[in-house]
Write a protein that binds this DNA or RNA. Structure first.
Lengths: 234, 234
DNA sequence: ACGTCGGCTATACGCATGTGTAGTATCCGA
DNA sequence: TCGGATACTACACATGCGTATAGCCGACGT
């Protein structure tokens, strides 16, 4: 599945008559210039953040800058369409068991075609855009749904605040990746997949330790807090 | 302790002759224009990120924009001095027991004068600047040092990878705060202290649960991973 | 009293950006 | 075959940015 193939069906903006180029040997050229621009924008936004200029995006797509305005009207409209495409891709990608709190993001990074998507999502959250908030809320809802079934299946411990726990795990995991991304500003988008992989490997053991035993030696902190909030431990 | 009072002693740039204004009733005016500019820059950078323009900073300080160049030479030099001031403040602030993984950031948010500093640090990390990396590494070193003493004292469980655990906890905690900051782009700097407080309250119970018991119902994941990496559980 | 120096302002310059406009070429339908 | 629409480009415009320059003005030493 290619990024460009993800349909943005709800918005009938795609007026390009789907002209299949006869030369299908060149991968980036077998797409409409409009789709190429959208893909280039996703990659540029992921690589540089949303300050990437329209001229940079156009250059990456191999077209002139004015074509962005011709096809999308404005940079913001282009970005909105990128958000839509990535959100749709994110929706279709997580149908299978990707929602485990530990392995979800790791498996994302494995798939080549989803690497840019993950970084794009991180950039959206980092940027504070409504799309970023939508991504976060989506992941929290997924994590909560998964945790409910996993608790019923005896895989996860129950929590006194399941929604808060899902919120905590998602925001901290995504935030941790954003920090990793921010700590390596010089890296190229292509290399960041390897960085993600190495990050997951480096944090796997501490993560599993934390998720298995926590960090506190005993439960005094928890007991004290439960007494403090008037919900004594049972 | 005021932000402006934090000495940046290592850099002898402060050539202002420390003219104490006779009218000490107006708090922002009892400082040198240079110090006022630095404080205004810290606040603007915390509020808007480092894209805040020099004209905005100068307006907040009540001076003209050209004065920034006159005193600091360039915007980047001004930012470097802000980094220095905040880092020095961070160093002096954490001497007492602020380094507990759970309460460190919470206590930061409590102190009024440290609120802007915390947000400034988050912005630095979010921005990917070397100063942000320095903050992170500093906190990781602190967390590691604390965890060693806490493990010896029987407060924290030992870890097979203490440095990785400290790294994980710091990056995820800071990252979680960055996400919270990003999810509220419209908020003012003054209000963000309340948001921090409410965030800590909302995540306190799930955090303590996680730190006490983890999330996994049993240790099968950990045992499997330890077998996988060739270090069977003892 | 006066000259000089430093804090401070007003204004202008160069640059990058997003956007608008005019024009060319290419394709599709009648 | 022709005509209009459409993909696409080149160039110009306005804006906001960091930076540079020239000058005012008060303080301080002599």
């Amino acid at each position: 599945m290619r990024i460009a193939d993800a349909p943005t069906s709800d918005a009938p903006i795609d007026d390009a008559p789907a002209d299949e180029a006869p030369d299908a040997s060149i991968p980036p050229s077998d797409l409409t210039a409009r789709a190429r621009l959208r893909d280039a924008a996703i990659e540029c936004f992921a690589a540089e953040g949303f300050t990437a200029s329209v001229r940079t995006i156009a250059a990456r797509a191999g077209v002139s800058a004015g074509l962005i305005r011709h096809h999308f009207g404005s940079k913001e409209a282009l970005r909105a369409e990128c958000d839509e495409a990535v959100l749709a891709m994110h929706r279709t990608a997580k149908v299978e068991g990707l929602t485990s709190p530990l392995s979800a993001l790791a498996q994302y990074a494995e798939a080549d075609e989803y690497g840019a998507m993950l970084v794009y999502i991180l950039r959206s959250v980092q940027d504070g855009s409504p799309a970023g908030a939508a991504f976060i809320e989506h992941m929290i809802a997924d994590a909560l749904a998964y945790s409910e079934t996993a608790v019923d299946a005896g895989i996860l411990r129950p929590s006194r605040d399941p929604e808060g726990r899902a919120r905590l795990l998602v925001t901290n995991s995504i935030g941790g990746l954003i920090v990793q991304l921010s700590l390596r500003p010089e890296i190229s988008l292509a290399d960041f997949k390897a960085v993600l992989h190495e990050t997951f490997e480096a944090t796997a053991l501490p993560s599993i330790e934390l998720y298995t035993h926590g960090v506190f030696a005993d439960s005094t902190y928890l007991d004290q807090y439960l007494l403090y909030i008037g919900d004594p431990p049972g």
